[in-house]
């Protein structure tokens, strides 16, 4: 069964077009990533899927319900982690989960049975009766994730789940999300961290200017869109060197600020030339495999999106 399906969804605010014909199909048990620059329409897509705003055209089904008419029934079976923290600051951790569970009409008895497990999942059992204010950013995120599971949903929506977290906190969230998919939950997450998408997602759609410009597994996208090896050049004279030599030695190269990105099917010739040692002394270089970020930047461009 398809847990979530968007077909031909158009959304605009006045003359500002946000989405122009989006199709998304989410299957059970998968983690699906929605990637895009700021303002690409990721959050709008999540809001549409939850029935919090309506599209101008297209159909949206969530958990088998048409969200235009039965969003309430659909939301009964979905968990949501919003982009900004919206825990109740006046409550303890336990109360946050309890009060949130009531919104799903879950009885107190069931909630009290469920809450210890969720606090444990969030690694916060010891702080169950503390107020939210005493928690760090990472702890708040974990509690928000635990709260999203209070109704034992089959699918969890996560809007930029690790934005603003330090690396330790981020890895802990990733670990928990993997645990969820291992337990058969489906995840729909938006992010602009390529590393996050690459590590977590089975499938990715890159969305830009209201359209899905490509879709597939991270590995497949890298294979399809980009040369497998990347040499980055920094330092004085990098640009001049690239113009003189790189065009000949790799498939293509890009200049961003002072850095040159050389994309090659085989970087041997390029490295050979760099290792000869007669190039500008200030020049440094780094060889790495192509990543999702390279795909993303190739497809959406390197210009700032403000």
């Amino acid at each position: 069964m398809s847990l979530l399906s968007l077909k031909g969804v158009h959304k605009s605010y006045g003359s500002h077009i946000v989405l122009q014909g989006i199709d998304i199909e989410l299957k059970a048990g998968e983690c699906f990533g929605l990637l895009g620059p700021n303002g690409a329409g990721k959050t709008t897509t999540l809001r549409l899927a939850l029935g919090l705003t309506h599209p101008q055209a297209g159909s949206i089904h969530l958990m088998g319900h048409d969200v235009l008419t039965h969003a309430r029934l659909a939301r009964q079976q979905v968990g949501v982690v919003a982009q900004t923290d919206n825990l109740d600051p006046d409550f303890t951790l336990r109360e946050n989960l309890l009060v949130y569970g009531r919104y799903f009409d879950i009885s107190r008895q069931i909630l009290e049975a469920r809450i210890p497990g969720l606090l444990d999942f969030a690694g916060l059992s010891a702080r169950a009766d503390e107020r939210i204010q005493s928690l760090s950013g990472g702890m708040k995120r974990r509690l928000t994730l635990a709260r999203a599971l209070i109704n034992d949903p089959q699918i969890v929506f996560l809007d930029e789940p690790t934005t603003g977290l330090d690396p330790q906190a981020r890895h802990l969230i990733w670990d928990r999300l993997r645990q969820l998919t291992q337990n058969g939950k489906s995840l729909l997450l938006t992010t602009h961290f390529m590393e996050e998408a690459e590590r977590l997602c089975d499938r990715i759609a890159i969305i830009d200017q209201g359209k899905i410009i490509t879709e597939g597994s991270p590995q497949q996208l890298i294979r399809d869109h980009i040369e497998p090896q990347v040499v980055e050049l920094y330092g004085e004279g990098a640009a001049a060197w690239a113009h003189a030599k790189a065009a000949r030695l790799c498939e293509r190269f890009e200049l961003t600020g002072g850095t040159v990105f050389c994309y090659a099917n085989d970087a041997k010739a390029l490295l050979c030339e760099l290792n000869r040692g007669d190039f500008t002394p200030g020049l440094r270089f780094l060889l790495r495999p192509a990543s999702l970020e390279d795909v993303f930047l190739k497809l959406t461009g390197r210009d700032l999106r403000d």
Partner: peptide, 14 residues
Amino acid sequence: IQRTWEAIINTPVD
């Protein structure tokens, strides 16, 4: 400020 309503309307409560 607290975005409490936002959290609530993501549930069956509209």
